[in-house]
Structures are given as structure tokens and as C-alpha cells.
């Protein structure tokens, strides 16, 4: 299972990076979202796979998952939303100012920018 999950996380990261390098802003937003999935998963998996119970400190509870990475990832997910929202606003503003959704603010003459 460890190998398959690692490959899935790697694939998320690869897809995220590829989209991050696209020239259109919406692709970049998608890529950033995918990349944040991958990074959140990576941090979360720092608590390993073997846990069987949610991190509730109940009497007699065993096999708790690690709460610390979960707390870190929880705020990261919410902040990720804040970042996406800000990026979207930036993209719309940039489109209003430059008239394009190209990340460099202008359509490259040779389409390779």
C-alpha cells in the first residue's frame, strides 16, 4: 500500500507542477490546488498509515493517528482556500488591467512566452 500511495502523491505533485508551468492563469490555479493536495498529503502521511482510530484522547483508546500533522494540515487547507481566492482576484484584476489571462500579462508574439 505504501508504494501505491506514494505513487499517487507523486502523481498529484507532477500534475500540479505541469499545470503550474502553463501560461494561462486558470491552469496555474488548478495546478496550485493539485500541488497543495500533494503537499498536504505528504505532511499528513508523516503520521504514517497504521493508525486505526481518530486522534480522540478517550480512555482506553488505542492506535490513535498522529494529531500534530493533522493540526498543521487543517490550517493549511483553510489557508489554501484563502490563497486560491486571492489568486483568483489577482487574475481577474490582471485581466482587467492587461486584457489577457496570460500570466506574463501579455500574449507572447511567438506563443512561446
Amino acid at each position: 500500500m505504501a508504494l501505491v500511495i506514494s505513487m499517487a502523491v507523486g502523481l498529484l505533485a507532477a500534475c500540479g507542477i505541469y499545470l503550474l508551468l502553463r501560461p494561462r492563469i486558470f491552469s496555474v490555479i488548478l495546478g496550485l490546488t493539485l500541488l497543495s493536495y500533494a503537499v498536504n498529503a505528504l505532511i499528513f502521511l508523516g503520521g504514517r498509515l497504521g493508525a486505526t482510530a481518530a486522534p480522540l484522547a478517550l480512555p482506553g483508546a488505542r492506535g490513535l493517528s498522529d494529531p500534530l500533522p493533522q493540526a498543521l494540515v487543517l490550517t493549511a487547507i483553510v489557508i489554501g482556500f484563502g490563497m486560491t481566492a486571492y489568486l483568483v482576484a489577482l487574475a481577474l484584476r490582471a485581466r482587467a488591467e492587461t486584457g489577457t489571462d496570460h500570466v506574463d500579462g501579455a500574449d507572447g508574439p511567438e506563443g512561446e512566452r
Partner: peptide
């Protein structure tokens, strides 16, 4: 980059 992340995750897990 994906291979790197996958390798890192696997090594950690």
C-alpha cells in the same frame, strides 16, 4: 518533481 515527491513519501512511509 513527481518522482521526487513519490520517493520521499515512500521513504518516509
Amino acid at each position: 518533481g513527481g518522482l521526487g515527491v513519490a520517493g520521499l513519501t515512500f521513504a518516509m512511509l
